[in-house]
Design a protein around this nucleic acid. Structure first.
Length: 517
RNA sequence: GCUCCGGUGGUGUAGUCCGGUUAAGCAUCUCGCCCUCUCAAGGCGAAGACCACGGGUUCAAAUCCCGUCCGGAGCACCA
């Protein structure tokens, strides 16, 4: 039955909606739920990465959700680099994150750094101490930890006058690193340990990428985040669920300072099975050279997804399909692949690559030039001309399954009949003769490379980086073979589908990376 | 250990707040058929969850209540 026939039959059986309803539901699944208390034109969200590493798929989820909501309500998205730790931030990471977002198609309406507001943050910290909402603690880290565990307070907390005296010393350079911190006056016996007088500021001697060593007193994330969100006009602040216990602190700080409170929303982290996002698991592999760079196709960095051949639209659709649940799960990588495949399929030229080539000699075949379609249905992708002779290569796997008398079709060329398989001297050579020209449904159809049209080619096939807790030593398979010479004219970043092999992105001269099947 | 958060087919989710309009929708995966000079895309269909488990409330519960179990997170002068 033709497609048109199928459709008309369906229309008969289920007049009206039948065809559209499934698609509609699938599309609805790619919509984020309404935002609590959101008003058209008034929503402000923010994506607050710390510039301490390369952006990965987890960043993409947060950034995309932040942006989608801003757009959904005609609001604003702020990209705010949460750079409050001079020991960790590096200039190259600000750029890497900006670049990653740009590739993703996430366009912030405003870009800023938390460090831009360092003076403001200082003054709010000072004010909080003056308000008796915080104090300067000079206890050792060990003692602080110990007392916190026991739910007990230290002497530093008791006397407000001491706090006032110390706060000046805090900022005038009287204290060294580790000698004093500003602590929130919470509740030392609170069941929520985040409320047991957490650190708000600490002294860090480091070279900050934006401020150098001018600043020594740095706010912690716990202090900077709520102040910045509030002052930036953020209406809906989203973060991953490991911060949940810190919500109480976030709001308590704003309360004490009398600042406006954003709505807080959390969602689960995104990570794939076997593809850890944590630097802890990736950095060692880079340092000892098992992985060469941060855009290695096995990695979950945005640079890696890009190099591997994923398109940003696919990542966005995928992220939206996950929704904003709190359930901690590892979604299937196949789903991302499916989204990507549907997007790139219509625009990927079909070309030939044969892995582990085996020679096929066709008796009496005449040399000629053939014209091959670059896409089965879209003629606008053009054609290419290939000169063939009587000798070809087919993929090793295809050759293996052949027996004498089998008839197969060389795609878009002609049928051949196997007459001899010569396995002498370790080098299999197949002899065949031209068969009929009838294209039978049941007949194997294989891609081929003409002997005089060969280019040596390599395809990297990324696999799971980790198997459980162990590095997967077979995480990168290299497929060697021949591609048609046309492939070598393609520039890096071109996308192709090697017929019956998989979708690939051209990576370098004579090298591609398999995106997925 | 304490506290908090989760638990819907193999997987990811919708539905849960306002209990009954579908005894569970969509996607992915698997399988079959159609289409096809690809093992891609597209079309159709099948299989697969009594909604973690046990009680309770109710005429009626995935949806409300209680308990249990399992999973995760936090308990940094990281974010």
């Amino acid at each position: 039955m033709s497609l048109a026939d199928q459709k008309s039959l369906l229309e008969e059986l289920a007049p009206g909606e039948a065809i559209t309803s499934k698609k509609k539901q699938a599309a609805e699944q790619l919509q984020l739920p309404p935002l609590e208390g959101a008003m058209q034109g008034k929503v402000v969200t923010r994506f607050p990465p710390e510039p301490n590493g390369y952006p990965h798929i987890g960043h993409a989820k947060a950034a995309i959700i932040d942006e989608e909501y801003a757009r959904m309500y005609g609001g604003k998205l702020i990209l705010r680099f949460d750079d409050t730790n001079p020991l960790k931030e590096k200039l190259e990471y600000y750029d890497a994150i900006s670049g990653g977002l740009e590739w993703l198609g996430v366009k912030p309406d405003l870009v800023k750094n938390t460090s831009d507001d360092i003076k403001l943050l200082h003054s709010y910290g000072r004010r909080l101490v003056e308000l008796d909402g915080a104090y300067v603690c000079t206890c050792s880290q060990d003692r602080i930890r110990d007392l916190r565990a026991k739910g007990l307070s230290c002497e530093c907390r008791r006397d407000h006058a001491t706090a006032l005296e110390r706060i000046s010393k805090m900022f005038d350079g009287s204290y060294e690193q580790n000698q004093a911190i500003i602590r929130f006056k919470g509740e030392m016996a609170d069941q929520n340990t985040a409320m047991r007088d957490p650190a708000l500021f600490r002294i860090l001697e480091g070279n900050h990428p934006k401020l150098g060593n001018k600043v020594r007193v740095w706010p912690t994330y716990d202090f900077a985040a709520p102040i910045e969100d509030s002052l930036d006009g953020v209406t809906h602040a989203m973060r991953t669920k490991e911060y949940e216990l810190r919500n109480a602190l976030y709001f308590a700080i704003l309360d004490r300072l009398g600042l406006r409170k954003p709505t807080m929303i959390e969602f689960s982290r995104l990570e794939f099975e076997g593809v850890p996002v944590s630097k802890r698991k990736i950095k060692p592999l880079i340092e000892d050279g098992r992985i060469k760079s941060w855009d290695d196709p096995r990695l979950p960095t945005l640079a890696a997804f890009r190099r591997r051949g994923f398109v940003p639209e696919a990542i966005r659709k995928f992220v939206l399909s996950l929704g904003i649940t709190l359930a901690e799960t590892k979604p299937p990588f196949e789903t991302l692949e499916a989204f990507n495949r549907k997007i790139i399929d219509p625009v990927s030229p079909r070309l030939f690559f044969v892995k582990n080539p085996v020679e096929v000699h066709i008796n009496g075949a005449l040399g000629k030039e053939v014209v091959l379609k670059n896409h089965p249905t879209d003629a606008s992708l053009g054609t290419r001309k290939v000169k063939v002779t009587d000798t070809f290569y087919i993929a090793g796997d295809d050759a293996t399954s052949l027996k004498v008398d089998d008839e197969i079709r060389l795609i878009e060329l002609y049928n051949i009949k196997i007459i001899e398989i010569d396995e002498s001297n370790n080098n299999r050579v197949i002899k065949a003769q031209i068969g009929g020209d009838e294209i039978r449904q049941s007949m194997p159809k294989v891609q081929w490379i003409a002997k005089n049209d060969i280019v040596e080619y390599k395809v990297m096939i990324p696999k799971e980086l980790y198997k459980g807790e162990e590095y997967n030593t077979n995480s990168l398979e290299i497929a060697q073979g021949f591609a048609e010479s046309f492939v070598s004219t393609l520039k890096p970043d071109a996308r192709v589908q090697f017929v019956r092999f998989g979708f690939c992105r051209i990576d370098a001269k004579n090298q591609a990376i398999m995106t997925h099947r």
